[in-house]
């Protein structure tokens, strides 16, 4: 059973992520979970699309497929359906998954293919220099929302629940232990497991939104997250929840029919 350090492609380090980028943290948690699962490196395939988050697949020691923008889930569908014995993990970002890849996302959830999808939601297009994404909070500044984002944001976890994924959770890069446990639970759960990670982008998002330091952004994520159980309780009590917060925790765990199970 490979140790966690063997899961990294050591000759590619250090990686291209900026100082304080949350993607490295998510990569750590994912590989820790894969190691905890006792998976073999040669039985695992990492698939990713385009964007900062999607470079993560290149830093894993396993076979990895770094594909075109938004199409990671469609490629992963092909890999998993053709060879169900593989453990398939998809790295994606908020723009990659919800904008250009939105159609593939809902259909992968609907098919409930047995794989683990990890979305690094940094609320912005980081690779191209900080443009607004469907997940940019209302009022936040970016290079394409110079007067504050006007569009409502996408709640990806709720979308995955509605589309039919078997396991859906959301954590942040502050909650590394919970995130690791959650990814492991997702890997254990048959069917599509969607783990959304709110991640910091101090370089592009923070710079425009008075959160320039990585510490400030991590504290922002910590302070604006609210446990889903607490949120539901407050909602039941009829209390108002500020719309700047986002729920964290396990959204759903169920056993709908699954495609691409190991034979």
């Amino acid at each position: 059973m490979p140790s966690v350090s063997e899961w990294y492609r050591a000759d590619r380090m250090p990686h291209i992520f900026c100082t304080g980028c949350g993607n490295g943290t998510v990569l750590n948690c994912t590989l820790q979970a894969a190691s905890d699962m006792g998976w073999e490196i040669d039985d695992t395939v990492f698939v990713s699309g385009i964007g900062c988050s999607s470079r993560a697949s290149g830093y894993t020691a396993a076979d990895s497929l770094h594909t075109t923008h938004g199409r990671a889930l469609a490629f992963a569908t092909g890999v998993k359906m053709a060879h169900p014995e593989f453990n398939v993990v998809v790295f994606t970002g908020d723009g990659d998954l919800s904008a250009i890849g939105g159609n593939h996302f809902i259909h992968a959830c609907r098919r409930n293919i047995d794989m683990t999808v990890i979305c690094m939601n940094n609320m912005i297009y980081g690779m191209t220099g900080g443009q607004g994404s469907p997940c940019t909070p209302r009022g936040a500044f970016s290079t394409t929302t110079p007067y504050g984002a006007q569009e409502p944001t996408f709640d990806l976890a709720e979308l995955a629940v509605a589309a039919g994924a078997n396991y859906v959770s959301r954590w942040t890069t502050y909650h590394v232990k919970q995130l690791t446990d959650s990814i492991k639970t997702g890997m254990e759960t048959p069917g599509l497991s969607f783990i959304e990670t709110m991640s910091q982008c101090p370089t592009s998002y923070g710079r425009k939104n008075k959160l320039r330091q990585p510490l400030d952004m991590i504290e922002y994520l910590r302070d604006h997250s609210i446990l889903i159980s607490k949120k539901r309780r407050l909602e039941a009590e009829g209390k108002v929840i500020p719309d700047t917060t986002f729920a964290v925790g396990e959204f759903v765990r169920r056993s709908r029919p699954v495609m691409g199970l190991k034979r």
Binding site: V47, L65, A74, T77, G78, K80, A82, N103, H104, H107
Partner: peptide, 19 residues
């Protein structure tokens, strides 16, 4: 597998080919 569009179709066969 019937995919959701042609982009997904060709993506899926490339993924499958790599296996």
């Amino acid at each position: 597998i019937q995919m959701e569009d042609e982009i997904a179709s060709i993506s899926s066969i490339i993924g499958a080919s790599w296996t």
